[in-house]
Computed example of a mutant assay.
Amino acid sequence: MEAGTGTNTNQGPKRSNVSLSKLVGIAVTVVVLLIVGMNSFAQVEYGHVGLYKTFGKLNDNILSPGMHLKIPFIQTVIQVNTQVTKTETDTTASSKDLQPVSTHVAVNYSVNKESAYNLMNNIGGSFDTVIINPAVQEIVKEVTARYQAEDLIAKRDTVAGEISDHLTSRLAKYDLIVNEINIVNFKFSEAFNQSIEAKQVAQQQALKASNDLKRIEIEAKQKIAQAQAEAESLKLKKQEVTPELVQLKQIEVQEKALDKWDGKLPQVTGGATPFIDLQSLTNQQK
């Protein structure tokens, strides 16, 4: 009885240990499968393309945006941004008249999707600092040296277009597309800025003087025209004065004086009193 009881007591812990080991094994298996499953997929984001990288070697198969299978722990998927991206570069150069010029240039570029493998395999992900910025600096220096300092300001769009043409040709060798280039700022020496400001002030003063002279000339012409008009008017008025008109005016004055006369002759007459021909007036009334 004691022996039987002892045997049953020892078998209970063994069965419990076996069951626990199985549960642990199942749990580990599930975790491993989950890890393997999660590492069997890779997602390429919108606006990017993907490239398989197996043991450090790139595959030329271009992956479009979305989910893709991969070999767990062996393959990775690197993503290449194909959207329009901006890079900014500062360049110091000299103009044709040897004025120091600092130029801040912004370049909008994008990666050719079909050529992403060549770009990443030959240059790598830091192609903006390896290829684009040095190219911008070299081309800006070359173009700036062809223009006078003042022309760089006056012909800003032309300068930007020339830089864009050269940069487009240069970056096409590396499958990079130049979408747009902008000259954000030209910065010159303080002495040059002062000379430009003085020149502008002189031009404004000369323009003001020219405008004043034109205004004076116009006013003088207006006065001459007015005087001529007045003279012509006076001339026409003189032409209208005839002997008959003078006689008629005299008669009108005499008639008005007669209407006001009370029939009494003035005791004293002055030089200002008009002479009234009573006989002629009487004859006219008859």
Rank of each mutant, 00 (worst) to 15 (best):
Q137V: 12
S195Q: 15
Q148V: 10
T144K: 06
I132A: 05
I196A: 07
T89L: 00
N112K: 13
Q83K: 11
S195R: 15
Y117Q: 04
S102R: 14
T129G: 07
K155A: 00
F186H: 11
E150W: 09
V136D: 01
L167A: 11
I139L: 04
S195D: 12
V107I: 12
S94T: 10
Y147G: 06
V178K: 08
T129L: 00
H166L: 15
R170F: 02
K155N: 14
I123H: 07
T144I: 14
Y117P: 08
S110L: 00
E88G: 08
L171H: 10
F186W: 12
I183D: 02
R146N: 15
R170G: 00
K141H: 03
S189R: 03
D128G: 07
F188Q: 02
V101A: 04
V159G: 09
A135T: 15
L176F: 05
I181L: 15
D151A: 14
F192E: 00
D151H: 10
L171I: 10
V184Q: 08
S110H: 10
K155Y: 08
I183Q: 00
M120R: 06
T103Y: 04
L98S: 13
G161A: 10
E197K: 15
A135H: 10
V140S: 03
S110D: 07
F127G: 08
A191L: 13
P134N: 00
S110I: 02
A93E: 04
E138P: 07
Q75G: 13
F188D: 03
N182I: 11
K96D: 09
V143F: 02
S95R: 09
K155G: 04
I183A: 03
V159D: 05
I139E: 03
G124A: 11
K187W: 01
S94Q: 14
V77G: 04
E197G: 01
N121K: 13
S195F: 06
T85W: 05
Q99L: 04
S94V: 01
I181Q: 07
H104Y: 10
F192A: 01
R156Y: 08
I163W: 04
I132T: 05
V143C: 01
I183T: 00
N182R: 13
A191C: 02
L176C: 03
F127E: 07
S164C: 08
I132Q: 08
K155F: 05
V178R: 12
T82N: 06
I196M: 15
L176N: 04
H166D: 13
T85V: 08
K113M: 09
A198S: 14
H166I: 06
A191Y: 12
D175R: 11
A135D: 07
S95Q: 05
Q83E: 13
Q79D: 09
V77A: 04
Y109E: 01
V178A: 06
G161D: 13
K86T: 11
S164V: 10
Q194L: 12
N179M: 03
V101E: 04
S115W: 05
E162Q: 15
V107Y: 06
Q75A: 10
